Amino acid sequence: MIEMVIEQRRRGLGGGLDVGRVLPFAQRRMVGPFVFFDHMGPLDVAAGVGRNLDVRPHPHIGLSTVTYLFSGEIMHRDSVGSQQAIRPQEVNWMTAGSGITHSERFEKARAVGDHLHGIQAWVALPVDDEETLPSFSHHAGSDLPQWREAGVAGQLIAGSAYGLTAGVRTHSPLFYAHLDLATGAIAEVPSGHAERAIYVATGSIEVDDQRHAAGRMLVLGPDVSRIKALEHATVMVLGGEPVGERYLYWNFVSSSKERLKQAAADWKAGRMKLPDFDNVEFIPLPDSPVAP
């Protein structure tokens, strides 16, 4: 049984970059520890595009950001000294903990043009880890196990599923994987997790004899065990154990509303360090920075 269907809501981030906002949703704030899920693009970018496409330095607390690309390239810089480009089928995993700032620049697109398409998710940290030291890790190759079987090409992004474990350090039990399905292919959905969902990034699939097209997240009941591609499809499967209620305020996530207010005050007052290699500009605190 499908418990809920969430349609993406298009949001403009400025500079011509649109995203499909999926989580948080009014009737479903989280799936396992996943508290935010954006579908970036797809967007063709011509060489020479302005810097207003970039995501300038901004802060986070209480979460890990997970960037994963189907195509394109993004340059990441943060306040713990990281400077790392991410490319398709790689993972940038940034744990904000007590506080981190970072930027995301489309430097390759500006130089030679690019086709941008990917997913950014936020994973809420357990209460005991919300104030952990900030960190960043980049993963590719053997860190992200791949498999092929009967028309399904899969890659594990984080956690454990399909008998595999990714090399990404997580703070709570979860799974996150990218499946590429040929027309007619059937893929298993990992079981044994309290909460699970599927996001259709491209193409269309069948679940419980119903067709679901791109841009739709399906929150699954415990009895759903497989999906079928009605055409070539790109699907993200995700879930895990709940970590408890979380509040969002702009880019901040916390189990405490008071902590959110403190983070906002710290950013507004300039008390959060900017990225080491990108510290000339930043995004100001919005007037009403509540996540939609």
Rank of each mutant, 00 (worst) to 15 (best):
A229C: 01
Y162R: 06
L17E: 05
V5I: 14
T183R: 13
A229P: 01
G48S: 13
L238K: 04
L238N: 01
M75P: 05
M40W: 14
T132M: 13
Y199E: 02
G118F: 09
N251Q: 12
V5K: 13
D287T: 10
A213H: 06
L218G: 05
G167P: 10
A213N: 10
L179Q: 01
D38A: 02
V22M: 07
T170I: 11
S204D: 09
T95Q: 11
R226I: 05
P275V: 06
Q155M: 15
F136R: 01
R11K: 13
R10H: 09
D38N: 00
F282A: 12
S255R: 15
P126D: 09
Q262N: 00
L248G: 03
S79W: 10
P57F: 10
P284M: 08
K273C: 04
G12Q: 12
H138A: 12
M30T: 14
L220H: 12
A194T: 13
E149R: 15
R51L: 12
G20M: 01
Q84T: 11
D18K: 03
D18E: 15
Y199F: 15
H138P: 04
M30L: 13
E206R: 08
D114E: 10
L260I: 00
I227D: 02
M94Y: 04
R216F: 00
V235G: 11
A182L: 12
L230E: 14
G48N: 10
N92K: 09
G159Q: 05
E107G: 01
L63H: 09
S256E: 12
P33R: 07
W250Y: 10
F282C: 02
G48Y: 08
T165Y: 11
G192C: 06
V66E: 07
L116M: 15
R105C: 07
D208P: 02
L218S: 01
R110V: 04
G240S: 05
T165K: 14
L125H: 05
V35P: 00
S71L: 01
S254C: 07
Q83V: 14
H178K: 12
S79R: 02
F136K: 04
A177T: 09
P284N: 04
G239K: 08
T132V: 15
Y162I: 11
I205F: 00
V91L: 12
S71A: 15
R21P: 03
L248H: 14
A214G: 12
R271E: 13
Y162C: 11
I157C: 03
I283A: 08
Y249P: 05
I198A: 06
I157G: 06
S137K: 12
I119R: 04
R28L: 01
S204C: 01
F252P: 01
I6F: 01
M4C: 03
R226M: 08
D278A: 11
H76F: 04
D114I: 06
M30I: 00
E130P: 01
L43C: 06
H139T: 04
A229W: 06
G163I: 03
A194C: 06
S191A: 13
L218Y: 05
Q155S: 10
G221Q: 08
S255H: 15
K261T: 11
P173H: 09
P24E: 05
